[in-house]
């Protein structure tokens, strides 16, 4: 059982790793690269806590093999802030109490950022459907949806 050598980019950093063929990208991030910001809530693509982007496309890292990352550009929650500057979504989530326990928060932030890049002026319904694959059991989603909408409004004003 020989390991696969993968060369990829994670949050803009050239990265190499060895993995087993059956390792998911989430396994690689968490167990081989020590990037535990992406969470495993289900392992079956039903909860979204492991959300990352690959070549700009939002995916569940539990539903992708680590080997598939060869030559791709992966971004994770760890790449969301710039130095000590939080992304506006991160800041807004804290300000608006859009998290309680915080386990779903990394996945929701990655997903929400992906939404706003695609659609800077989403309706409430669009935000709710975009985030339907990100389960949150604490908040009832209310404050999350509001925080995403407000950040979108802030970003529109700023641009």
């Amino acid at each position: 059982m020989s390991q696969i050598h993968v060369t990829t980019s994670i949050n803009g950093d050239a990265t190499e790793f060895l993995c087993e063929a059956e390792d998911t990208l989430l396994d690689v991030l968490r167990d081989r690269l020590g990037m535990t910001g992406s969470k495993e809530g289900c392992g079956t693509g039903d909860c979204g806590a492991c959300s990352v982007t690959v070549d700009g496309r939002l995916v569940c890292s539990c539903l992708m093999l680590g080997a598939e990352a060869e030559g791709r550009e992966v971004t994770t929650i760890e790449g969301m802030a710039t130095g000590d500057q939080l992304h506006p979504l991160q800041q807004k989530f804290i300000e608006m109490a859009a998290l309680q326990c915080g386990i779903c928060t990394p996945g929701i932030l990655v997903a929400a950022k992906s939404l706003l890049e695609k659609n800077p002026d989403p309706t409430e319904e669009e935000v709710r459907y975009w985030l339907a694959g990100n389960l949150c059991r604490c908040t009832g989603y209310d404050k999350i949806i509001r925080a995403v909408m407000e950040t979108a409004a802030d970003l529109r004003r700023a641009s």
Binding site: T36, G37, E40, E78
Partner: peptide
């Protein structure tokens, strides 16, 4: 009042260590 929670930044950056994150 509604101050910012002390564990907020850890939780929005992925730094917070949950059960499965301990090694």
């Amino acid at each position: 009042t509604r101050p910012l929670r002390p564990d907020g930044i850890d939780k929005v950056t992925g730094r917070a260590r949950f059960g499965a994150d301990i090694v």
